[in-house]
Every structure is written in C-alpha cells, then in structure tokens.
Design a protein around this nucleic acid. Structure first.
Lengths: 341, 341
DNA sequence: GCAACTTTTTAACGCGCGTAAAGTTTTTAT
DNA sequence: ATAAAAACTTTACGCGCGTTAAAAAGTTGC
C-alpha cells in the first residue's frame, strides 16, 4: 500500500484523468457508473483523500457548516448539538462545533473566526439578550445562517425553535386543573429571550383562566442556573413568598436548584398528600428524570427542532444563501408528567 | 474601508512587502518593531486576515489542535473541553472540538477526519474499553497526541489524568472513619478504564483497613449512567443487597441515579440520625452540588488536569512531536464533604 | 564613517486542487 | 449504422500563500 501524495498521483494509479477524479469527489454521481466504479476500486486499494485545504481554497462554496451554541456545558445544548452534527455529516457536510460559554466576547470571536472558514452555512443558537446584535447582523449578511432555540428578531434567514406559549400553557393548565394556580419562578434578568416569552405566556394564560399571576424574580446573572435557582428558592421559602402551593419554574435548571433547596429545607415536593409544594418546569432537561422528586415538565421536541433546523439550512444553502422571506418555525411542547407536580 | 482580497493587496496598502507580511503573521516578533507597527497600523485600518486554507496548505505545521472527548453531553467533559479550548486559543492555536458520543465508530471517524486537518497536536480522551486500540495507535503514530482522562497503556506521547487511587482512598477512608465501611457500586462492564482502577483501589484500601470489600455490579451498557444507576439502585434496595449502611459509587452520574432511587423508595440518605444510608461518590460532577441530598464526593483537579494536558501538548509540539519517554501525570483528588455521607 | 550584521525587497517557484477550453472517445438515440 | 449527445482526456491557468535566493536597504558597533 503506497502512500499517495496528491490527486495527480491517485488519478494516474486509478487510470482516470485528474479532472474527472476531481469531479467525482465533488459529486460521485456526476461521473459515469463505470468510471465511478474504477475510482472507488482504486480508492479501496490506495486510501487517498483530497487535501481539505487545497479543496476549499478555490471553491466558492465549501462543505463546512458551523454550529454555535451558547453554553455547551448545558446538556440540553450538548444533545441538540449532537443531533445537528450527525445530520450534517449524514448530508455530506463537515460540521464544526463551537460554544460561546455564555460570553458575548466569545460569541463574537467565534463568528469572526467562522467567517474565515467560508462555511456553506451556520446553525446559530445565540446567547440572546447579551448577544451583540450588530455583530450578529453583520455576520448573517455575510454567511447563510439559520437561528435556532433563541430568536433574535429579524436576524438570520430563518428561525427554528420551540413554541414557548405551548410550554407554559400546558404546564399552567395542568397545574391549575389539578391543584392551586402556580407562581412563576424566574431570573430577574434572563439571558435567554425564551424566558421573556414564557413569562408573558404565563401571565396571559393565568388571566385567561381567571387567576391572578404571581411572578417571583430572583437575582443572579450568568449561566449557573442551578445555583441561582437554589439561592433564590432558599430566599423564597424563608420569606414565605408563595401565595399558593404551586410553583412553575421558567426552566428545568432553575427547577433543579429549587428542588435542592426544598429538600434541604425538609419541604416535600410532589402531588401526593404528604407534600407541601408542587413544582413544575419547562424544557425536559436530560437530568429532569433524576431530580428528587422527578420533575414534571414540558419537553422540547428535540428531534423536530434539530431536524427542521438542518433541513432549513440545507434549503437555504441550495437556494444560494437567501430566502425570499424570513420564516419562523415553532414546535409545540409535550407535557411530561413525573412526580414533582 | 476597502475590501482586501489577499495578502498581496494588503502588503501594498501597508507599504511592506508580502514575504515580510507573511513572516509577521507567522510570528509578529520576527520582524523589526517599526515594520511590525506599520503592519499593525494597516491591520486596524483595513481588517484583513490571511486565508486559512491557503495558509495551511503549505505549512508542514498548522496551528490546528484537535480536542476529542468521549461524550460531550456529560457536563464533566464539557467543562474540561471548555478549559482546553480557552488554553489553546490563548496560546495562539485553533482548537476544534469533537465528541465521540460514546461510539467507537464515531471515535474512529473523528480521528480519521482529524488527520486531514494536519493538526499540530491532539488532546484525546478516548472512549476507553470500547476504543479501537489499533486505530488509535495508528493515529498516534501519525499525529502528536496527548491522552487525558482515560489512559490507554502505551498509547499517545503522554497521559494526564486523575489518580484514581487518591479518589477512592479518600472516600473510603472518610466513610470508614465516620461510619460503616462502604460497598462499592459500579457498572458490570464499565466503559472507562478509570472505573477498573477505582474498583481495585477500593479493594486494596478496604483490605488494608481490615474490612471485607463488597462490590455490587449493576447491568447496563452505554453512557446513560444515571439511568443505569437508578435501575441498579432500585434492584439493590429491593433485594437488600447492602451489608452496611454505606455505599460508594464508582462515579457521580451513577450516584445521581442511586440517590433518585433512594428518594423514590423513601430512604433518607445522609449522615444525620434520621438517615438510613450514606452515599458517596467520585468525580465532583457539576451537578453533584444539587442532588438530594447534595453529594459527598472526591473532586477532580479540573484545572490541573486540563492545564497540564495542554502544557504537555505544547511541549510535545515544540519537541517536534516526539518525547523521549512516555510520561503519565496523575493529580490527586480533593474530598468534598456535602450532605450525602 | 566604515565594516559587519540584520532585515527587507524583489523575483520566482511550488503546494494540491478547481476549473475552463478544446479535442477525443464513448454512449445514446434514431 | 450514423449522427447527436454525453463523458472523458489533455492542456493550462489560477487560487492565496509559504518559502527561498539574491540583491538592496537599514542598523549596529567601534
């Protein structure tokens, strides 16, 4: 098994001319079946692959796809990223994964560095409120981009995410139907725009059902949601700020902190008779099944959000990087009943 | 602000010749301070950056670094990856992050694809038992590689990880000193070599202390450790397989499942009088603080493991990709006392 | 101010592949 | 069988930059 240096050499060994071999690597179906067979036969014998850097140097359209998430240490994004990666690979693209780690500076740097990769397209879940809107706007005007998870009005060629109203209406309706109406537990200045939509939905649904909305805002910034939820919950419990026995957390990671605080305070959570509190939440975080008690929550439609995101990006790429109009696709939540409410 | 097309054009605008500009980008200190100033001045006015693909095409040594972890949806690896990424960037390298998602096939594909990136070096946390040893061996012979977290005997130029004996000896000694000796709770066929080292350490320490080791092996494969721990714990509790009131879990994710099972069964865990069980563990997973009760565990020295890994890789790169001898660096654990034991 | 360095410029080639044009061979259709 | 269409070969240029060799310019020490 000789070492092949370049396409010239490989072409010679396979008995096919270099331009045809080049064509083959660009799209195997673009050559005659017989020549394709000869190339692939040689490919097995010699194990050659085109030099990525040389390939991408001239092509206007590379096969690179950037995937950017706001915080990879959150298993929710790790899961989505995994799905997106796989889909890209399956479609013949080369995904590169990046995490903004909750920092605007990093998000900007990533987008900056991404440009020099000349990506065919980018799947971007922005930080949200703390994103540098103008930087992202500029980026989107240069690179075909589909936003997911967090919407930034008007930015990107399309948005795919979850319908926050669907999340909250299901959890609120369930809780009011089976017990007392819930207070809404959230961060004072949430980083993610979904949080704001959820608060609004909560107020709307509560009013429609004839209940008085009651929002509890806890202090804290950054992405250490569990810690923030934990501290906030201790304060809430200590100061008896709850008008009812029901709490709806804005997201699961806050709820994880909330439940930890309840446990420490000896407050039993759940819908059984001996429980003093019911706690529900939104997201269906991978760990929600293992909280104590297990968390009743509204689940993202992971598969559809991720699937539709890549589909949309592929359409965008094939349309030459521009859509007529910006579309927003929202998938409804699925209520997951567990023990906490 | 004109659009600069290439280095030629930028060189002209900055009044410096192209080879010198090229030299500058390779190493800013390699040019005279006055010319450096002129280049950087032009850089501010024109916002040019060399084409990555063209740059990497000719250089034998790129500035790319591959980071490969076995399972990114595990926040432990997400955290480490984050640290590694930052360190690489700070050192002027371009890290690319990959997750094997627990699959040998993917791990091989990643290493395969990584080769064509001509990376200066790779930080690899292999899957462990299910890794394709020969594939990794081949890869390591082509690319300067530092293994971390999971050691594979003799593979890679160096290994940096945690001292599993230190983990287990601290947890076991603590538990025996403050109560009954613990049983050891683990997966029957652990994917990670650290698990085997921990079991051995458990047996050794128990025997040294004059206690009978008692190992509980639960079924299950894959990386859904919480689920496996949960199911296993239900069985253990139901069949009363525990000879004492103490359990040491091989890792935190198993412990999270274990604690969830205890909660469901109404078994209070902790070191207080009203508790029936003590549960400790190893790793100090990011979520260990928020379990119910919070988890007593032995913490990885994250910073040192990650820091030493990149340092070692940089040394390796500067040594031309080869070390005289393969070194193994192990960092001890730090016992974190919380409420579960 | 002059020799000895050091740095920069000029000129030119190469990397591995994309791609286009013109000519040749093979396939398809009638 | 034959013309038309499709696929392939040959030839050649270009991409953006690394890199080298020789010549020119700038810097340093005495």
């Amino acid at each position: 098994m000789t070492k092949i240096k370049n396409m010239e050499e490989f072409a010679a060994l396979s008995g096919i001319s270099r331009p045809t071999v080049s064509k083959y690597f660009h799209d195997p179906d673009s050559v005659r079946p017989t020549t394709r067979a000869r190339i692939e036969e040689a490919l097995e014998r010699f194990d050659y692959r085109p030099n990525i850097f040389a390939v991408n140097q001239n092509r206007k359209l590379t096969k690179n796809i950037g995937i950017v998430v706001p915080y990879l240490a959150d298993p929710f994004f790790a899961e989505i990223a995994r799905y997106l990666e796989q889909s890209c690979i399956a479609a013949g693209y080369r995904p590169s994964l990046f995490s903004s780690h909750g920092e605007q500076k990093l998000e900007n740097e990533i987008l900056d560095g991404l440009q020099s990769l000349k990506p065919a397209g980018v799947l971007l879940a922005p930080l949200g409120r703390i994103s540098d809107r103008s930087a992202i706007e500029k980026f989107c005007s240069n690179v075909p981009t589909v936003l997911f998870d967090s919407n930034l009005d008007g930015l990107g060629a399309a948005f795919v995410g979850s319908d926050n109203f669907s999340f909250v209406s299901q959890t609120v309706e369930y809780m009011t139907r089976t017990g007392e109406p819930p207070s809404f537990f959230e961060m004072r200045t949430p980083a993610n725009p979904n949080a704001n939509k959820r608060r609004k939905a909560y107020v709307e649904v509560m009013e429609r059902l004839g209940f008085e909305p009651h929002i509890i805002k806890v202090d804290g910034t950054g992405w250490a949601f569990e810690e923030i939820g934990h501290r906030g919950a201790l304060k809430v419990l200590e100061e008896r700020m709850l008008p009812s026995d029901s709490v709806l957390c804005s997201n699961d990671r806050l709820a994880i902190g909330f439940l930890a605080a309840c446990y420490e305070q000896g407050i039993r959570v759940g819908r059984k008779d001996d429980c003093a509190l019911r706690v529900a939440s939104n997201d269906d975080h991978p760990f929600a099944k293992f909280t104590c008690p297990s968390l009743t929550t509204a689940a993202h439609d992971y598969d559809n959000v991720a699937g539709r995101s890549v589909e949309t990006l592929f359409e965008l790429i094939e349309s030459g990087g521009k859509f007529e109009t910006r579309t927003e696709t929202l998938f409804p939540a699925r209520l997951v009943l567990r023990d906490s409410a």
